[in-house]
């Protein structure tokens, strides 16, 4: 099923295939524990079928990888920028609740643009503020998605705008 003999192998491709196979075997076992072979209509029947298919095709991939003696590609799978940026994004997600959406996103945008583009402070600042304002208006104000608040008491500030100075506001 797997015909690309002439293809160049990527670094870690064999290992990735093995990991996929191991994961699929674990999923098959986990599917079996849902209801065993109790009934054709059991909640475990479909997961077992799907994971069995996964085990079978993952085995084909692993066998195909083993047969192929391709030249190893010199290409870097995980360049430094990707690792750094991914770490930054994870830090951003982790900061969403304690810091709140607005400060966390602001910091993320500034740092990410500095990391990737070396943009000037002023430019980063303008882009970050403008895009955040847009996102906030669309998601929080129009679509009423309550974003994590963190250290900025948005609700209280919004309520103030709404009820005190301008009672005719919607």
């Amino acid at each position: 099923m797997d015909y690309h003999e002439h293809h160049v192998k990527h670094r870690g491709e064999d290992a990735f295939g093995l990991v996929v196979l191991v994961v699929s075997v674990l999923l098959l076992w986990k599917s079996y524990t849902i209801a065993g072979f109790s009934a054709l209509s059991s909640p475990g029947a479909f997961p077992m079928a799907a994971s069995a298919v996964m085990v079978f095709s993952a085995s084909l991939v692993v066998i195909g990888n083993a047969r192929r003696r391709g030249r190893l590609s010199g290409e870097e799978i995980l360049p430094r920028t990707v690792v750094l940026f991914t770490a930054l994004v994870i830090a951003y997600a982790a900061a969403l609740v304690p810091l709140g959406f607005l400060p966390a996103s602001f910091l993320f945008l500034i740092l990410a643009m500095k990391l990737l583009y070396r943009a000037s402070w002023l430019r980063s600042l303008i882009i970050a503020l403008a895009s955040l304002a847009l996102v906030y208006i669309v998601f929080r104000l129009v679509f009423q998605v309550v974003l994590p608040q963190g250290i900025v008491p948005e609700d209280e500030i919004l309520a103030m705008f709404r009820h005190h100075p301008a009672p005719e506001a919607p």
């Binding site: 963190g150 250290i151 900025v152 008491p153 209280e156 500030i157 103030m160």
Partner: peptide, 8 residues
Amino acid sequence: RRLLVGAA
């Protein structure tokens, strides 16, 4: 946060 709430 408390500070800001206080201010608000």
